[in-house]
Amino acid sequence: MEIYSDSAATTAIDPEVIETMLPFLTTNFGNPSSSHWAGRKVREAIDQSRKKIAKLLNVTPEEIFFVSGATEGNNLALSESIREYGLNHAITSKIEHKAVLEPLLRHEREGDIEISYVKLDKKGNVDLEHLERLLDANPQSLISLMHGNNEIGNLTDIQVISRLAKKYNAVFHTDTTQTIGKVQLNLSEFPVDFLVGSAHKFHGPKGVGFIFINMRHKLKPRILGGGQENGQRGGTENVIGIVGLAKALEIAYRDFDLIKEKTSALKRRFISEIENSGIENVGYNGESRSETKSLGSIVNVSFPCLQSGSLVSKLDQFGIAVSGGSACSNLGNGGSHVIRAINNEADKENVRFSFSKFNTAEEVEHIVQTIVNIYNADSIPIEPNVLHQSFTWIH
């Protein structure tokens, strides 16, 4: 039995999205930059996709630009705003995605900026008072803080941060890769400068995303040639991906309440099953146990280390896909930078389970039962062939 519980990494494409994309793999194959009927038909599809996304986010179509994904969008926003506005100070946190941290660290190494890291509490929440002190000491800073953390699910109050950014004349960039499609964002309610998302996180195709650039800004393009995307990004557009992105976001907003209710119920059930499983010394990283302070689709659990290897690897052997940032000394990989920043507890294996609308309660029960069986087997020295026999029922 194969179970996919790693939707924070990527999601299955929704069948409706595939249906929307298919014509652009067959009959609607024109180059959108061509002036003839075949090109105009495809150009119209791109324009309609841009308008659809803008309407859902309550911004203007001129503020939405298509890119290859959030990583490109993050790099564009950070690097080009530093260059365009001569920014010399950036504020971020130590639990941001590497697509944010690595560009900022490169600029620091090159002498362009100095980085300040906002304080986090033991659960990874941003200390907003410390953020304001940093802004007071360093006005006109670049702020880059994500909306929802990809490992622990923590939600950050970007509305409050946007108001602080405005007060101190700062530039505010937020990575919403994990929250687009899972949280209904109305960008008319708060003045974000740059915001990014990737389609494959909300049941769209891989290799396409978008960046919102507030109309107050005009960044220089990082990819030159052709003048596409109103001069912001050269190169023939990924038409198939763009129409899939727009459709996926449309579905996410259309079915928002149903999807949120289902994934939250799966998360609650998983936590309940784990806490009644009999496995001792289980904890939760960040706010991932909370229904209000973290995403309803992510739970990051710290398990006692197995004697016989990695829990993530063992689950994979039984067809269960999850992600891990293990800190167990016997695994020797040091763990994830997010967990290290908020949790000094060694001898725990940290595993992220992330659910989507395609998961079921039966799958949740099967995952927990498999974990229980793995721990039961690990507590007794068993020959490998006997261990295999004891788990044959799972396959």
Rank of each mutant, 00 (worst) to 15 (best):
S5N: 09
T10L: 06
T10H: 09
I13V: 13
I13D: 00
E16S: 10
P23I: 08
P23D: 08
P32C: 06
S33A: 13
S34C: 09
S35I: 11
A38M: 11
R43E: 13
E44D: 09
I46H: 09
D47F: 06
S49A: 15
K55S: 12
L57S: 00
P61G: 04
E63K: 05
I64W: 02
F65H: 15
F65C: 07
V67K: 05
E72S: 01
R83V: 10
T92F: 07
H97W: 03
V100D: 02
L101A: 08
L101P: 00
L104W: 01
L105N: 10
I113T: 01
I113Q: 01
S116E: 04
V118T: 09
K122S: 15
K123R: 12
G124T: 01
N125F: 08
L128N: 12
L134E: 09
L135Y: 04
A137H: 12
I143M: 12
M146L: 15
H147E: 15
G153I: 07
D157E: 09
D157Y: 04
I158Q: 05
I158L: 14
I161A: 03
I161N: 01
S162D: 04
R163W: 10
A165M: 02
K167P: 02
Y168D: 01
A170N: 05
V171G: 04
T174Y: 07
T174H: 06
D175V: 06
T176N: 13
I180N: 10
Q184L: 15
N186F: 09
L187D: 02
L187V: 03
F190G: 03
P191D: 11
G197I: 07
H203L: 05
P205K: 00
F212K: 04
N214I: 03
M215W: 00
K218S: 12
K220Q: 10
K220T: 12
K220V: 06
L224M: 13
G234Y: 04
G234M: 04
T236G: 10
E237V: 04
V243L: 04
I251S: 05
R254G: 04
K260H: 14
K262Q: 11
S264K: 13
S264A: 11
A265E: 13
L266M: 08
E275H: 06
N276F: 00
G278I: 05
G283Q: 09
N285H: 11
G286K: 06
S288D: 06
S290Y: 04
T292V: 07
V299I: 12
F303M: 08
P304E: 08
S308Y: 00
S308P: 00
S308C: 03
S310W: 03
V312W: 01
S313P: 00
K314R: 12
K314M: 10
L315M: 09
Q317D: 15
Q317Y: 09
V322F: 02
A327Q: 15
N330R: 14
G332T: 10
I339D: 02
A346M: 12
E349L: 04
V351D: 03
T360R: 06
A361T: 11
E362N: 08
I367T: 06
I371E: 02
I371F: 02
I374M: 08
I374Y: 07
D378N: 12
D378R: 08
S379A: 14
I380A: 05
I380H: 10
E383S: 14
L387T: 12
H388G: 12
Q389P: 00
F391R: 14
